Simulated assay, not measured.
Amino acid sequence: MKDRLSLFIMIDACGWEIVKNHPFLQSMAPHRRRLESVFGYSSTCVPSILSGRWPDEHRNWCYFVYNPAESPFRPLRALRWLPTALTSRRIVRRYLTKFVKTHLGFRGYFDLYNIPFRYIHLFDFTEKKSPLQPRGMNVGPNIFDLLEEKQVPYYVTNPALPEEEHLRLLLADIKSERIDFAFQYWAGLDGLLHSVGNDSPEIPKKLDHYDAWISQVMETARKHYRHIDLHVFSDHGMANCDEHLDLRAKIDTLGLRMGIDYAVVYDSTMARFWFLKPGVREKVETLLATVPEGRILPEEELRHYRTWFDDQAFGELIWLAREGVLIVPSHMGERPIRAMHGYHPTDPQSYATLFSNTDQVPEDLTHIPHIHRLMEQAVLAHAAARSSQPATP
Score class of each variant (00 low, 15 high):
3 D>E: 15
5 L>R: 05
7 L>T: 04
7 L>D: 05
10 M>D: 00
15 G>H: 06
18 I>D: 05
21 N>I: 12
24 F>G: 02
25 L>A: 05
28 M>Y: 06
28 M>I: 10
29 A>T: 09
30 P>Y: 12
35 L>T: 04
36 E>P: 02
37 S>E: 14
37 S>N: 13
38 V>I: 09
39 F>G: 02
40 G>W: 07
41 Y>S: 08
41 Y>N: 07
48 S>I: 10
50 L>R: 01
50 L>W: 03
55 P>F: 06
58 H>V: 05
59 R>S: 02
59 R>V: 15
62 C>T: 15
66 Y>A: 04
66 Y>L: 02
69 A>H: 05
70 E>I: 04
71 S>K: 04
71 S>D: 06
72 P>Y: 13
75 P>N: 15
77 R>I: 06
80 R>G: 05
86 L>H: 01
87 T>G: 01
89 R>I: 11
96 L>V: 02
99 F>Y: 12
105 G>Y: 12
106 F>I: 06
110 F>E: 03
114 N>K: 07
116 P>Y: 08
117 F>K: 06
118 R>S: 13
119 Y>Q: 06
120 I>S: 02
125 F>A: 03
128 K>I: 09
129 K>G: 06
129 K>C: 11
137 M>Q: 07
142 N>P: 04
148 E>N: 12
152 V>N: 03
153 P>D: 15
156 V>T: 09
158 N>M: 14
163 E>Q: 07
168 R>T: 03
172 A>S: 13
173 D>T: 02
174 I>G: 04
176 S>L: 14
179 I>T: 00
182 A>L: 06
192 L>T: 00
194 H>F: 06
196 V>E: 10
196 V>Y: 05
198 N>V: 08
198 N>I: 10
200 S>N: 10
201 P>C: 11
202 E>P: 03
202 E>A: 06
206 K>T: 12
208 D>W: 06
211 D>Q: 15
212 A>P: 00
220 T>V: 13
221 A>E: 05
227 H>C: 09
227 H>F: 10
228 I>T: 14
232 V>D: 01
232 V>R: 12
233 F>N: 03
235 D>N: 08
239 A>N: 06
243 E>L: 11
245 L>Q: 04
246 D>T: 01
246 D>S: 01
247 L>W: 04
251 I>C: 04
255 G>A: 13
258 M>C: 05
260 I>K: 11
261 D>W: 09
277 K>M: 12
278 P>C: 11
280 V>M: 11
282 E>C: 00
284 V>F: 07
287 L>T: 01
288 L>V: 10
289 A>E: 15
292 P>H: 13
297 L>G: 00
299 E>G: 03
299 E>A: 10
304 H>A: 10
305 Y>E: 12
309 F>D: 08
310 D>E: 15
317 L>C: 09
320 L>Y: 02
320 L>N: 01
323 E>Y: 00
323 E>D: 08
329 P>S: 09
329 P>Y: 10
336 P>N: 09
339 A>L: 04
340 M>K: 13
341 H>S: 03
345 P>W: 13
346 T>P: 04
350 S>C: 06
351 Y>W: 09
352 A>I: 05
353 T>N: 07
353 T>Q: 12
357 N>S: 14
357 N>D: 11
364 D>R: 12
368 I>G: 00
373 R>G: 13
377 Q>G: 08
381 A>P: 01
385 A>M: 12
385 A>S: 10
386 R>G: 14
386 R>K: 15
389 Q>P: 00
392 T>Y: 11
393 P>Q: 14
